[in-house]
Structures are given as C-alpha cells and as structure tokens.
Nucleic acid binder design. Structure first.
Lengths: 348, 348
DNA sequence: CTGAAAGCGCTTACAG
DNA sequence: CTGAAAGCGCTTACAG
C-alpha cells in the first residue's frame, strides 16, 4: 500500500539511497550532520526497511528458525498438561531476537522421516534464515549438521551430546545434574537407587545415566544391573520401567527418572503398590516442567535452563556472525536441583 | 550457497522463467506435458522458491503474524505453571499454516503503550505478512483495526467482542458459556451464585457476565449486586474478589470465575476460610488451562477452543484472500463444560 | 499456450 | 565521505 521506501527517505533527506542504507545499517563513513538528517527523515516518514528486499539484496534475513521434534511437541500441546519446552524456548529466545530486530520462527521436524532433509532444505531455501536452532534429537544428528554446514547456515545446537563439535553448542551439564540428584539421595541415606533411562536416541539419556553411575561409584555404592531400566521419556515407558523396579525382590528406596513424565509415572506406580512417597520411595525427576510442581507430593527435580539456553543460542546466532564455532567449547548453563516433597531419608 | 533458482529450473526444463513460475503457482494455461517437464526439473534440482524474492515480486509473503499481549504472555511463561494460550495457538495454527506452505510468526505487543501502533507498523512494514491474527485485548482495539485496514492487511480477530465487525472474527459464545456454567450450578440446586468478572478491557469479561445474568434471570433467581465482583483475570485479583464474596453475611454457595487463575485463587481462599470444595462451595472456572486439572479438587471449567480458533483464523487468512469479511457473521466455535470435582449440590 | 521485459526495495562492490 | 549502477530471484502485466 503505497508504503514508504528508502527512496522516499532519500528524497526527503536530499541524499542518495546509498547514504540512507548506510545510516540504517550503521555503516561507517557518514558525517553526523547527514546521519541526523537521514534519521529525521526516517522518523518523519515512519520508514521501516522491507525485510524481503534486504534479504534479496544480500543482507541478513533477520530470521532465526528453531526446529523442534514434531510428535513429542504436538503431543504435549494436545495433552494440555503444560509440559512446555517450546514455551520456555519462546520465553528465552523471542525477547532476545526482538531486541536486535530479529524474528523467531518455530518449525516442526519429523523425527526420522525420509523427508527430514527435504523439509530442512525447503525451510532453509525458502526462508534463508540467518541461523538455525536445533533441539534434541535433531541437535545431535550428524547428517543434519552436514546438510546445514553445506548450505552455509549458522547453527546453534541445544543439548547436542558429545562427539560432534560443530556449530554453537549450548548445554547444561547433564552428567553433573544426574550426579547431583544421586548425591542428594545418597546424602539422605539412600543406598539402593534405581535409574530410569531416557530415550536412547537422545544424547542426554546416556549422559544422565553416566552421572548416576559416577556418583554411585564415587560413594562406593553398588550398582545393580536390574536397578537401571532402559526406557523412553514417556509416561507409558515410565509406568513400565517403574513397575519393573518396584517389583524387584530388593527394590530401590529411591528412583531417579530421566524425565518428568517418567517420574510422574513412577509416582503413579508407587501409589498403586501402596508405597508412600517419599516415606517408602523417593523420586527425583528431570526437566521440571509444570506438572511436577502440581503433583502430590510435588516432585524434587533437576530444572533444565531451557529459556536461558534458547536465549544464549539466539545471542550466539545473532552476534556470532563470522565466528567459526567449530571445535570451540560448548556454552554450559547452570541447572538447578529443586528440592520439593518427593525426597526424604529412606524409611527402613 | 549457489542455491538453485528458478533460472536453473527453466534451463533444465528448457522453458522460460515465466513458465516455471506458472507451474509453481498453479497458474492456468500450461500444457500437461510442459508442466510435467517443469515438475521433473524442480524435483531433480530440489528447487524451492525463495520467499523473499516472491514477496518482492509482489506475490504473497506466506507469512502470518499472531500478535499476543506481551506482559500476560511472558508472565505466564515465567511462572511456568503451564497456562499456555500461546501453545494452544501454535497447536492449532502451525500445522494448518504448514499445510499450505505458510509460516506463523508469534509477536508480542505491549498492552497500551504509545508505541503500540509504531510496533505494529514496523512488523507489518518489515515482514509484509499476508495476514495478522489478533488476540485479546488487541483484537477489540478499534484503532488497531483502523491501522491494519489502512495498511491493507487481512485480519483475523480472536474473541474480538461485539460492536466492530471488521475482519474475520473467530469466537466462542462467551455469553452462552457463562450461561451454561450458571445453569449447571442451578441444576445442582444452587441459588446464591457469585460471579468474579474479568479485566474490564477484555470484551469477553462483559459477555461472560451477561451470560451469568441471563441464566439467573431465566431461572428467576435473584442477582445481588454484592455477588458480582469486578476484578481482573489474575490470581491476585481472584484472591481479593473471592475474599469479598466469602466474607459476605449471606455468602454464595457457588462461584463462577472468569479465568482459571481467579478460580484457583477462590479455591485458595475457600481453603483459608475452612470451606470444603465442593461441599461448602462450588467453583467453576473459565479457559481450562492445565493448572485447573491439577488442583485439588480439579476444577469444573469452561474449556475455550483456543487451538480450534487459531486454526480457523489461519484458514480464513490463508483461503480468504479477496473475500471481504467486513460485516459477515463471526465464526463461532464450540466450547465445552468440563465437569470435574469442584461442583456439587449445595450442602445447606 | 508461451516468452521477453520491467520492476519490486534494498545492498554490495565500485567509482569519485 | 558520498553517489550511480548492477543485481538479488522472483511475479506481473504485456506481447505474440
């Protein structure tokens, strides 16, 4: 609609397009007088650069795309239980993007579909984002990193696991978090501590397990193979693995779950087995999404700094142009052990 | 880099750019043979149109912007209680957008700031979205509609209230919802029913109140002025207004709250006053976000079809090009009364 | 039914 | 320190 363009501004200020462009982009070599004149014209006309045009002319797109795993994301939204990783990402990343005139686009990606790469290519080709935020499990998918690298797209990977050090990596110390949880239980007097692992295709799963092992060993506590139950992050998986743990002849007096859902499922199973939490069984969960603070009792949990991680990822993508992050150290953000009512000294 | 453009496709297929463009956009007048040849070339090269270029050349931007009220939105994310309206919008709108190659951008808008219009102009000018989804309270802000109309931007308004019939309007029947809630209580035997109003600057607040009034009158039940408490949607406001209601000489045996937060606050106050819910006091809330199903007892609530509304809004914006929605009827989506444990016959 | 030209609003080298 | 030209990748009228 007869919108204001750089041309109008140039006329109003009596300068060339070129100069206006330089002022907009804080380019060098503009006298203060001219700059002021241009700024005044911009304000007067209410000029705002057209992003599509800027992008076309070869500048930044001012767009960041955050890819999220489709099914778990939709599933959680549908369930309406408030387990909202995406909301936390928005909380961290959106205001950060806004501050520098960027926009954040959430995109859903199918876990392992054949068309995964096709979809990524389509998004990158059509949107030309200045950077892409990858979340698990895609953040650890080497073939995706390959693809994005080939396309020359900057990457920030949240919780990417170890091994591949390409792109900006933003993490919390998963291993230490699990160790802290374990030590908390040990300090309470627990010796038989069970562990429910997360989905095998998420790198954090192995890291959390390693932290548990390390802390148990450091305390010279035995680790029985039957105490470690391999599962997935889901409630259903939690039901199954917790059940297996609770029906053991010598059952653990405490359980560390690799997700909130699993922990909630463990709580459910404990109740079913007539075990009082935390009296007969202590439970610690991972992530600390809303439902765990509403449960009875509310759960002790490792809080993942999702918002802070997303903010950092955005910052790195916005400010890190030209920097080669490859091989540089990961950005480690602090987690927190939130102690609530599901942990106590063992009863027996 | 060195990305595939329409030019490459044209060469590969041995046709003009023009023809490729026609095929991409499902334009008329292309022979099947040519179309197939072009499609084959597109597939072979993995061509995806550059959105910035399309936009520049005067086509759609394939971008939808959803404006949300900044502070309440951030506040809820920060609180981490899972009261997530935005997540429900994403659930409804994102897959719908994706289906037609659109992208949804969430943007935050300050409630009443001077720079509100400036911000909207900036977003519209820089992004050139094909349409804008407005949510309360902005969806009922006449000056915003004016502004967007002037700019020629298509608008879909969620819960816009009555009066201004411009743009696509997607609503639930707020008045009927409140009436249904009221009738549910009446059917249970309640005669003294209190009502906590929502924020005055949200049109739904007045509508909900009107529904309550209508249902009470239809049942020939008295409406005492002191039973209607004007407040805001927040928990704090709920504490205050519920307190006022519960300390009345002749206190209501049931309360309808205009938001989940208020209802939770009422529950809190009831507990403080030694009243058992639902034995001594029934409570119904509005919206049905996650926390109300976690409370003790879980609350009976009117469920707002937020995801469905966002989906409809997207559909209207995507498919409704060229249609003038002004003055056409609003799109009414069904709400639901979810009966849980906070409502029962009055005790006395 | 198909194609050559102009132009969208910017930025990037390149001159001066 | 400032400006005239070219070009980004498309689509839109306009020819043929």
């Amino acid at each position: 609609m007869g919108s204001v363009t750089i041309k109008h501004v140039a006329e109003e200020a009596g300068v060339s397009l070129q100069t206006v462009s330089r002022v907009i982009n804080n380019g060098p070599n503009v006298t203060d007088a001219l700059r002021d004149r241009v700024r005044a014209a911009i304000d007067k006309l209410g000029y705002v650069p057209n992003m599509a045009a800027r992008r076309m002319a070869g500048s930044k797109s001012y767009l960041l795309v955050a890819f999220n795993d489709r099914e778990p994301t939709l599933e959680k939204w549908r369930a309406g239980r408030g387990s909202d990783w995406v909301a936390q990402m928005l909380l961290g990343a959106m205001p950060r993007c806004e501050r520098d005139g960027y926009h954040l686009l959430i995109e859903l990606l199918d876990g392992h579909s054949d068309r995964l790469h096709q979809r990524i290519d389509a998004v990158v080709s059509s949107l030309r984002p200045d950077g892409v935020i990858l979340t698990p499990p895609h953040s650890q998918d080497t073939s995706i990193i390959d693809q994005l690298e080939r396309r020359g797209v900057a990457i920030a990977r949240m919780s990417p696991g170890s091994g591949d050090e390409r792109g900006f990596r933003v993490v919390m110390d998963e291993q230490e978090a699990a160790a802290v949880a374990t030590r908390h239980l040990i300090a309470l007097g627990h010796r038989r501590i069970g562990f429910l692992t997360g989905s095998a295709d998420y790198a954090v799963s192995a890291e959390r397990l390693a932290g548990y092992r390390a802390a148990m060993e450091a305390a010279s506590l035995p680790i029985r193979a039957e105490w470690i139950r391999e599962g997935e992050f889901s409630f259903e998986s939690g039901l199954e693995t917790a059940e297996a743990l609770l029906t053991l002849a010598e059952r653990p007096s405490a359980i560390i779950a690799s997700s909130d859902e699993q922990a909630l499922a463990a709580l459910h199973r404990a109740r079913g087995a007539g075990l009082a939490v935390p009296r007969d069984l202590s439970i610690i969960s991972f992530d600390d999404t809303p439902p765990v603070s509403f449960s009875l009792p509310p759960l002790t949990a490792i809080r993942q700094p999702t918002a802070a991680m997303a903010e950092r990822a955005s910052t790195l993508l916005i400010e890190g142009r030209g920097i080669d992050p490859n091989g540089s150290p990961a950005h480690v953000l602090p987690f927190e052990l939130v102690i609530r009512g599901s942990t106590a000294p063992p009863h027996d």
